Simulated scan of single mutants.
Amino acid sequence: MVAIYKSGMNAALQDIAVISNNIANAGTVSFKRSDTIFEDIYATEKNRTSNLQLGNGVQRLEPRRAHQQGSFIMTNAALDLAINGEGFFAIKNPNNPDEIKYTRNGSINLTNEGELVTMDGFKYLDEENNEVKIPFTVVDSEENIRRLSAINVAANGSIQVDYGQGVSVKVATVGLSTFKDETKLRNDGNTNYIVTPESGQPVVSAPQDSATGTGSIQSGALEAANVDTTNEIARLLRAQQAFSGSSRIMQADVDMIRRLID
């Protein structure tokens, strides 16, 4: 019986850890909450008439990540992009070109070289998996040097750059990647994900692509975490009560055995 009580306590502890992580990341851009998954363990006991399935505790499974879209935080910054619908931004490690991760975090920084990067320096990729680079100057038809004045990203991912009045250049189209099962992507920290055999390989296309079902781009916004803090606190209280209840039952069982021995 002690093993059964212990499995219940361990399950409650994992539930508390997962819920606490959800609450801690409620303010993290594009964070996706997780749910703890359990299954019952049964032992088979044979008697003269049938095999009885007896409860033998609970088994913890890998937490399941919920990819429902979070609400939008309006920032009005030109390079803050939120995905309205399906898809992930592809980002490349500058120190390892073969390392590509995927994220819904569209808080984009512009480097001195005109590259679009994450806070960690990973480079955002376009619809053809090429790095996106924005020139700070161009030469117009009259051989005049024109300097960058504005950046606009359309709903279809088109990046249009203005160089003063009358000069506008499309430099790239933001790429979005979709997967067979996005819940099977492996979390690599900082709301970045890595492909696994279960998730399937990415299908890269432009936003608003009807063939792949990619969503649209909302410029001037960021996707908030899909965490309902009130609901998570209620779940945390239930998990704490489950742990407390299991520990009290186990203590009562131990006390009873001690009295019998004494």
Rank of each mutant, 00 (worst) to 15 (best):
E142W: 11
E143H: 15
N144S: 06
I145P: 05
R146E: 10
R146T: 03
L148A: 05
S149C: 08
S149T: 15
S149F: 11
S149V: 09
S149L: 14
A150M: 14
I151V: 08
N152E: 13
V153W: 01
A155E: 07
G157N: 09
G157S: 02
S158I: 14
S158A: 12
I159Y: 02
I159K: 05
I159R: 06
I159T: 01
Q160N: 08
V161K: 04
V161Q: 00
V161I: 06
D162M: 07
Y163K: 03
Y163I: 00
Y163N: 07
G164A: 03
G166C: 05
S168C: 08
S168A: 10
V169N: 03
V169Q: 13
K170V: 13
K170Y: 13
K170P: 00
V171K: 12
A172Q: 03
T173H: 07
T173S: 02
V174Q: 10
G175Y: 08
L176E: 03
L176C: 05
S177Q: 08
S177Y: 04
T178W: 02
F179E: 00
K180T: 11
K180P: 06
D181I: 12
E182A: 05
T183P: 01
K184E: 13
L185K: 03
L185Q: 03
R186A: 15
N187A: 14
N187T: 11
G189E: 12
G189Q: 12
G189N: 03
G189V: 11
G189A: 12
T191D: 04
T191W: 02
Y193W: 14
I194T: 10
I194H: 15
I194Q: 12
I194C: 01
V195P: 04
V195I: 08
V195T: 15
V195Q: 03
T196R: 08
T196D: 07
T196F: 08
T196L: 00
T196C: 09
T196Y: 08
E198I: 02
S199Q: 10
S199A: 06
G200Q: 11
Q201S: 08
Q201K: 09
Q201A: 09
P202V: 00
P202H: 02
V203G: 06
S205G: 10
A206L: 05
P207L: 12
D209W: 13
D209F: 15
S210C: 01
A211Y: 12
T212D: 04
G213D: 05
